[in-house]
Computed example of a mutant assay.
Amino acid sequence: LSADAPFVSFNCADYAQNTQLLFGHIFGIKKGAYTGAAQDSPGLIAKADGGILFLDEIHRLPPEGQEMLFTFIDKGIYRPLGESAQVHEASVQIIGATTESSESFLSTFNRRIPMAITLPNLASRSLDERYEIISLF
C-alpha cells in the first residue's frame, strides 16, 4: 500500500437493523434505487479503493451482505444497490473485527480469510500488561 492509501472504517452494527441501508453504505447506491435516492452515492468500497476497509462488528452483516462481500473478496467486483447493468472493480484489503467467536458466525469467511488474530481480553492479561496498556492511553 502507498503511504497515502485510504483507510476507511465502518461499524456494521450501526445499520444492522436496516440491511438495505447497510448494503448501500458498503457497496454504494445507484440513483433511483429507492425513493429518495436522488443521486449516485459511492460506497465505502469505492472510497477505500487502493487501501483498507475496516469493518467493525462484521458479525452483524446479514447473510445477503456476506454473499455480496464474498463476491467482492473472490473476484474484486461489486454492484452498488440498484445497479444491474454494470459491475464495478476495486482493490481493497478488508479487515473485519468482531467480539464473537469466528466458529459461531460467518463460517464461510474462515475459508476466505488468510489470517485471524485473537486478542486476549483485559481480564486474562497480566498486571504488567494491564499497566502498560493504561500507560499507553
Rank of each mutant, 00 (worst) to 15 (best):
G82L: 03
I26C: 05
E100W: 05
E132Y: 00
S126N: 09
I134A: 11
E103Q: 14
I95E: 06
D49F: 10
H59G: 14
E57S: 09
T71K: 14
I29C: 04
E129F: 07
S104E: 15
F23K: 05
G65H: 05
A116V: 15
A33E: 04
R60T: 02
V92C: 08
S107I: 13
H88S: 10
E129C: 14
A5M: 10
T35I: 10
H25S: 11
H25G: 03
I52C: 14
L127Q: 11
G82D: 02
V87C: 04
D128K: 15
I26V: 14
A37I: 01
T99I: 08
F27A: 01
F27P: 04
S124L: 13
L61V: 13
I95P: 10
M115H: 01
E57T: 11
A123M: 02
F10G: 03
Y131C: 07
L136D: 12
L61H: 01
F109P: 10
L53N: 05
M68P: 00
S102P: 15
I134V: 11
G28L: 08
D128I: 14
I73F: 06
G28P: 03
S102R: 13
L55G: 09
K30A: 06
A38Q: 03
D4T: 13
S41Y: 00
T35F: 06
T98H: 09
D56T: 11
N18A: 10
T99P: 10
N121Y: 13
D74L: 05
Q20F: 00
F27V: 02
R130K: 14
L119G: 08
A85F: 00
I134Y: 04
Q39Y: 05
A38D: 03
S101C: 13
G50A: 12
D128L: 14
L53A: 08
V92Y: 06
A46M: 04
F72S: 07
G96K: 08
I113L: 06
V87D: 07
E89T: 15
A38K: 01
L119Q: 12
E67W: 01
L22P: 09
L55Q: 06
R112T: 13
S9F: 00
L69I: 11
